[in-house]
């Protein structure tokens, strides 16, 4: 499992791996928002938590179709399925690698983009906390969606259609943490619920993803 995780990191970082694309996408989406809603800093600071969370969510979505598709096309997925590594572990390692290459950079970059949107001062810690706790759920749910659609040619759009409704609770609690935190209110309740969702998806979805992979491989 460690080997697969390390390999996926290496593949993401090397040329053509797409590392940084999600981050660039997050940056562009955030920069585009003021063009759409106007430069009024008061308005921007109200919508900043939601915009940052939706930007992070879309950036995660962007790289999901690569999670299994490349391994499926070059035959490695067949070989992994016949290896001693259980497919549940394959799914978990893939989700983890996706989070480290996509989710983690977003957590680090989010405060800088928060400045652009005039996010109120007390919100920054909550923003990083909520993204750090919430993006693993996005990767785990997304890996499940990628496993469902791995056999579908050009399944990227279908993947979004399946995954986005599943992102609703994570988004609600994640954005709520930042909104409440930025307003100077206590945000520990939504943060705890967000952490609960993350733990539950990490515990359960690798099994669902492995079941989907087994169906797609036969």
């Amino acid at each position: 499992m460690k080997g697969l995780f390390k390999r996926d990191l290496a593949l993401a970082i090397r040329a053509g791996g797409g590392f940084g694309l999600g981050l660039a996408f997050f940056l562009i989406v955030t920069i585009l928002v003021p063009f759409g809603v106007g430069p009024n800093t008061a308005t921007l600071s109200i919508i900043a938590p939601g915009v940052l969370w939706i930007g992070a969510l879309l950036a995660c979505l962007l790289s999901l179709d690569r999670v299994f598709q490349v391994d499926w096309e070059d035959g490695s997925l067949d070989l992994l399925a016949t290896s001693p590594l259980p497919l549940e572990n394959v799914a978990a390692a893939k989700a983890l690698a996706h989070w480290v290459t996509t989710g983690l950079p977003l957590v680090v970059a989010a405060p800088i983009l928060g400045l652009l949107l005039n996010l109120p001062m007390p919100g920054y810690l909550w923003l990083m906390l909520s993204l750090a706790l919430g993006t693993p759920a996005l990767s785990a749910i997304g890996t499940f969606g990628a496993a469902l659609t791995v056999g579908v040619k050009r399944g990227g759009l279908l993947l979004s259609l399946l995954v986005l409704p599943l992102y609703v609770p994570t988004l609600i609690f994640g954005a709520l943490v930042v909104t409440r935190g930025a307003a100077g209110l206590d945000a520990t309740t939504p943060l705890a619920l967000l952490a609960g969702i993350t733990l539950a998806t990490l515990a359960g979805l690798p099994f669902a993803a492995a079941a989907a992979l087994r169906v797609n491989l036969r």
């Binding site: 460690k2 080997g3 290496a10 090397r14 053509g16 791996g17 067949d78 070989l79």
Partner: peptide, 21 residues
């Protein structure tokens, strides 16, 4: 299908499978 990763070297490809197995 060969099941190889184009961005990895020959040695890295083999070492990956050695680790998995």
């Amino acid at each position: 299908a060969d099941g190889l990763k184009a961005q990895l070297t020959t040695a890295e490809n083999l070492r990956f499978w050695a680790e998995v197995f």
